[in-house]
Write a protein that binds this DNA or RNA. Structure first.
Lengths: 237, 237
DNA sequence: CGTGTCTTTGACAAAAGTCAAAGCTCGTGG
DNA sequence: CCACGAGCTTTGACTTTTGTCAAAGACACG
């Protein structure tokens, strides 16, 4: 590995990632099992469904989309993962990846060999706890998403999606009000269970109502409170 | 506890639950931290959202529904849990229950105090592994559900729902083709993101097409292969 | 044996999907 | 460095699915 190997200890997002609450020496130990390869380029696959499960992955930078393909060939995007987020947790139970992951832009990813992580988590209680917390959080987030998809209208879904991104960028020290949409309208539509055309129309409408402004792929949230109200569900009664 | 305390060791569903792959002595250890209270009666709450998280729960018998309530008061059922399934995993990350759980019929539940489980999982690698497997499986199942809700028509959702129940009853040694629907049409509709009326009409249609037969709350799957085709997505092209 | 909840059915409305077509971007190769 | 083409985005017109409203019937439980 002839790359400028950033260590967990000095990683800017280690408080969003696995090292949370670990002692210095424990982080070092964790760092020692992690592999860092060269960045994924746009559209490069991280793993494919059906592949054997060897490792989970932590996003260091960029954005990775994960998705499943149904028997009938329909693609369903299950998440857009930003720095600090862990990918591949759905593969632990069966030992094979049920989903696929692909870079939406040039992205750095840390490979965490699972058998080693498993062993290490036997020695480091804090690591075990953090892994479980991360998984618990994913379960929780998926449940919230279910509510969104089942109970909200198209406008509400898109508004909630933008606010979710906003908050996640904010946590990473980036602007909450102005950020880049790395995914296509098609990706957003797929994720939210809508048609591309619907998403496009909604973006237009949100702009006309001065809730957001869009320049190319850059979104600016100009009225976050109105957007929040919209996302909350405007009580159609 | 003056109840006929069934132990994990002799529990009929221990191979669907936490004890998977554990040695006899390990199961005993696990059993010793588990509390068994008197059965929950129909509609009794197991926990409410906002409550502090103390334990996860394993269903021993019956059926528990878990659900969230949005800020705007909409209920979203996130799962119907049968014997051997674990509830409350979404609460680990925040320390508070984000969701609620209620018995749909008289149900027995094992309470597994989380701090003790956490400690024990430090000593028993197999237990730690099984806990992670269970969580991984839940993440995976939630992703499949997302695909169902986002990409499938109403018929396909209901067909898939019935097949999912069928398979889960089968795994528990019960009939795959004839079982009781403990949840109401309203519950099914809520879970699948449909209106009650739609679900009712679909049940009627499935009966007319001789895919299922319904007598009161008892469903009989009369043509499982046709039902599978329907659930798969009949390729509208 | 009645009262409230659950279920079914019908008629209608609305949200979102589909189809079609044009304009736009961006990367690539000449 | 420019031109071309593939893929992405937008917009319009129309369709379809599913939701909503309303009401009656069936159960289930006290």
């Amino acid at each position: 590995m002839a790359l400028p190997s950033i260590k967990c200890q000095s990683c800017s997002i280690n408080q969003l990632c696995l090292p949370v609450m670990l002692a210095e020496s424990e982080v070092e130990h964790l760092d020692s099992i992690i592999q860092r390869k060269k960045p994924l380029t746009k559209n490069e696959m991280l793993f494919r469904s059906g592949e054997e499960f060897h490792a989970i992955y932590a996003v260091r930078s960029g954005c990775i989309k994960s998705y499943t393909i149904s028997e009938t060939g329909e693609e369903q995007i299950t998440g857009f993962h930003l720095a600090g987020e862990i990918i591949g947790l759905d593969a632990i139970s069966s030992g094979k990846h049920p989903s696929m992951a692909k870079a939406l832009e040039t992205s750095m990813v840390c490979t965490i060999p699972y058998p080693k992580l498993e062993m290490l988590s036997g020695e480091i209680p804090g690591l075990r706890q953090q892994l479980v917390r991360v998984m618990s959080r994913e379960i929780h987030d998926d449940q919230e998403l279910m509510l969104l998809l089942n109970k909200k209208s198209a406008d509400e879904r898109l508004a909630a999606f933008l606010l979710n991104l906003s908050s996640r960028f904010g946590k990473r020290g980036l602007s909450r009000t102005c950020f880049n949409l790395v995914m296509t309208r098609g990706d957003i539509a797929n994720y939210l269970g809508l048609a591309v055309e619907t998403v496009s129309r909604l973006f237009t409408k949100l702009q006309q109502n001065d809730l957001i402004a869009i320049k190319d792929k850059e979104v600016t949230i100009t009225d976050i409170s109105k957007l929040s109200v919209l996302a909350g569900g405007k009580c159609h009664h």
